[in-house]
Amino acid sequence: MQPRKQTPRLVRARVREHKALRGDYRFLALEFQAIGSLAQPGQFVHLRAPQLAARVLRRPFSIYSAKGNRLGILYKTVGQGTRALAEVAVGERVDVMGPLGRGFPTDRTGIVPVLVAGGYGVAPLSFLAGRLRVRGVVFVGGASARDVVLCVEDFRKLGWEVRTATEDGSRGIKGLITAPLDAWARKNRSQPLEFFACGPDGLLEAVGRLAAKGRWKAWLSLDKHMGCGLGACLACVQKVRDASGKETWARVCRDGPVFEAAEIVW
């Protein structure tokens, strides 16, 4: 094993923008030199909020946007880490390591890309939508309208067709996003679909099953509790099948977080 060619950086990044969005979502913009040319959609950064001094682990966040020297993170306040991060003020510095991990392939052509987002899984897919060479359809699911409206405009501006579903029916179809996704895929079964998904494990597993049925490829971005973020501690492991069919552990932080669905052993 050799070090990576494109190495992550560990920097103290200045907060340039930090604001509340709808629901419990927030947007954080950090000054990070050359992040626009370094970051791939699906990669993440490992953050340490200064307000979380009594905690020993960093917190991983998918990259939402990367342009020039500006790194954007879209996050939902769900626990101690994100609540501490919410306290960070513009002008303060945050300890950031990244970009880390293997992201989505962006050079695919001759496909109809289908992005599937569950909840805050929408963040890396919004980044991906601007970097893929071809346009297609985005399925966004969440608990309520507050979860799904966030990036809808982003996607539309970039030329994507958007379909939504909410569990409480407050926006789009009522229920899980997998129902309209399955129906749509059936209608387009002769198309060269390719799936790119990020969200809870249940959603990812369903997208993987759907793709396997239609003999399509699916790229899934996994969300696991991480330790070091560098592939050393072996906390965030996922069972996968290697090329020879043998079951083994993959490190979500370094071998992923994006895996081809066929590799994953649920």
Partner: peptide, 13 residues
């Protein structure tokens, strides 16, 4: 031991 992998993982940073 156990906090630094086999070194190569940290060599990036």
């Amino acid at each position: 031991s156990g906090t630094f992998g086999y070194g190569v993982e940290f060599a990036d940073v």
